[in-house]
Structures are given as structure tokens and as C-alpha cells.
Amino acid sequence: MAQAVTGHDKHGHGGHGHHDEHHEHEHESLKTFGFWMFLITDIILFGTLFATFIVLRFSTDGGPTAAEMFKMPGVIAETFILLTSSFTSGIAVLQMHRGNKKGLIGWLAVTAVLGLAFIYLEVSEFIELVHEGVTIGTSAYWSAFFTLVGTHGLHVSVGIVWMTALIIQLARRGITPVTQRKVNIISLYWHFLDVVWIFVLTIVYLMGVM
């Protein structure tokens, strides 16, 4: 992030190396805190979608219900793929702190590929539902379903694009305080998405089919 570097150059001109480093560290940890703030707002976003879904859980308008439509094997596969990717993103962070750039990029790539597999399964599930005549307009239940699960899928998709961009940046610049903070943040984001999915699995799918 070029502006971060020039930004801190303005504050301290040469000869204050240590001070600069300290300043930069403060700057990066402030940005991490900013990211936590984003996660909190995202929790609230998903909270409202979950609340809507729960309230509308019986509002199928006489149409197809969750128990009739859900195919659990695919959902279970999605769950374990995302769970594993949460773990591999953690391994990437671990490799970074060991100073292993190759390991870091490799594990981030594994995480992104697992994310892609998740999205592939989810999109196939949605396409199948639509082919069987269940769309976002079928009933209040399905509107809430597609909005909640789709918003999560969108988050994962954004995460994959972001991770790809970060991999390119890491390949070019290596492990610097700035890229380090970025890797920490994206791994937080990824763990967060895994947590959201666990609640989607529990509240939407498991409670839907029981």
C-alpha cells in the first residue's frame, strides 16, 4: 500500500528509523482494529438476515419446503471444504510468521482453491433448485433462503478475489509489515466466513431437514 508508506514518510524524516517503525506498527494495528469494526458490522448484517430467515421459516406459501428440497450430501461436502479452508488459511499465517514466503503463498492458494470448490458446489445447488422450480420469488421462505445463503456465498467470492490479489502482491513485494497485516486480516475474514457458514448449516440446513 503505497500511501501508507508515503504517509508515514511525511511524519518522520530520516534519522528516526526506530520511531518510524513504531509509528508504522501503530498504523498497521489500527488498520487491524478497523477490520474488526468491519467484521462487527458484518455480524450485524448477517444477524438481520438470520432473524428474517428464522421469522419466515414456515412461510412457504403452500409451496416446496426445505425438507423436500435440500440435498444434504452436497451441503455436508461444502461444510467440510470450508472448514478445511479455514484451517489452511491459518497455516498460511503460521508460515508467514516463520518467514516462509513460498509456504505462505502456497497455503493461501490452497485456501482460495477450496473456496472456489465451495462456491462451485453452492452455485450448482442453486442452479438445481431453480431447475426444480424453486427461485427467490417462490415464497417468503425461499426469498430469505437465497438472500442469506447468497450473501454468504458473495462474501466467499469476494474473499477469493481478494486472496488472489494478495497472492500477487506477496509474490511481488514479499513479506513486509504491510502485507503481513493484510494476510492477518484476510485470514480473520476467512475464519469469520467459516463461523457464519456453521450457523447457516445449523439454522438453515440442519433445522430445515429435521
Partner: peptide, 15 residues
Amino acid sequence: MENHNSHSPSHDSHG
């Protein structure tokens, strides 16, 4: 990579 670990933020624990 270079010795960046030297100024990796100490509170930034990584398990």
C-alpha cells in the same frame, strides 16, 4: 524472507 520477523508486532500472536 528477510529478517522482517524482527519487527513483527509482538501482540500479533499467531499460535
